[in-house]
């Protein structure tokens, strides 16, 4: 108990002595956590958006000729052999004509002199509601294109591919920013603490002459690292939460954001970021004091 009392007293003494540098380090940790978690928040929300859009995704296969019930069963078997699909609906030219008329609304009279026969027989394929299918949609489309009797396949290729690339880019940014920010935090914390320790070299020397053990010298430095990680990441996550709330309140009516509900980082993710920061900062402080005690 007394050990901890002395270690905490010593820690407070150190923090008071170099509060300016400590504050700068705290802000660095806060900003690092804020930047990383901000990208991660966007990434997770994009995944969620992709999932939502994936649920509404369907592929339309235009066929060269109508299929009888036996051919329809055969077609279903072939489609299912690629991957699981939720349902397949066959659309006759008449049903397609009715849909078109409905979509045209008041302008449906343009179809007055036309026969439904100009529209092809088609099949609407609804893939399983799994976002990961998005990346396989192109492969699925190519497979369907090669089925006998297929004229054309449509699924909104352009946006699916763009969205896929965007999510990939975002994942890349999250990984790169995460790695860089981890290295930055580690470097900043160990360098700052080492600087404060260099400034206290005389004090450390005197402490050694008075018989201070390594744990007496290391303890406060490790607690400083721990506190920097704890408070820095808490502040970073807190700032992210307020930023998130502000975006939610001010932009929830925007068309894009209206597609899905924005969600904050789950508790487990926040806890992992918090613990990760604490571990990084404690490791940084350990590195700084180890180098100094070796001298």
């Amino acid at each position: 108990m007394r050990f901890f009392l002395f270690i905490f007293t010593q820690t407070l003494r150190n923090i008071c002595h170099s509060w300016g540098v400590q504050l700068m380090t705290l802000l660095t940790v806060t900003l690092s956590v804020l930047i990383f978690s901000f990208f991660y928040l966007i990434y997770t929300n994009m995944l969620q958006a992709g999932e939502k859009l994936g649920q509404e995704l369907r592929l339309t296969v235009y066929l060269e000729s109508p299929l009888n019930p036996a051919e329809q069963e055969e077609f279903k078997k072939k489609v299912n052999s690629f991957g699981k699909v939720e349902k397949i609906i066959f659309i006759t030219p008449e049903q397609a004509f009715q849909r078109l008329a409905k979509q045209l609304g008041n302008d449906s009279d343009v179809l007055a002199d036309l026969s439904p026969a100009f529209l092809p027989f088609s099949a609407e394929i609804y893939p399983e509601k799994d976002f990961h299918n998005l990346s396989r949609i192109k492969e699925f489309s190519d497979y369907l294109k090669n089925l006998p009797g297929t004229q054309k396949v449509q699924y909104g290729q352009a946006w699916v591919e763009r969205f896929g690339h965007f999510v990939k880019l975002l994942r890349f940014i999250v990984i790169i920013s995460g790695t860089l920010l981890i290295l930055t935090t580690l470097f900043m914390v160990s360098s700052t603490l080492r600087l404060t320790l260099y400034a206290r070299q005389d004090e450390l020397k005197v402490l050694r002459y008075l018989g201070a053990t390594n744990s007496y010298i290391k303890g406060p430095v490790l607690i400083e690292g721990f506190a920097l990680g704890l408070f820095g990441s808490s502040l970073g996550l807190g700032a992210l939460f307020f930023l998130f709330q502000w975006i939610k309140i001010n932009f929830s009516s925007a068309v894009f954001l209206g597609l899905f509900e924005l969600r904050f980082l789950p508790m487990t993710t926040s806890a992992v970021i918090l613990l990760g920061s604490i571990m990084l900062c404690t490791l940084g402080s350990l590195l700084s004091i180890r180098r100094l005690l070796k001298r």
């Binding site: 007394r2 050990f3 009392l5 002395f6 007293t9 010593q10 005197v206 402490l207 008075l210 018989g211 201070a212 053990t213 007496y216």
Partner: peptide
């Protein structure tokens, strides 16, 4: 107080 503190003596 320092030499006594490094021995964690009673405050």
């Amino acid at each position: 107080a320092m030499p006594m503190e490094v021995q964690f003596k009673n405050p």
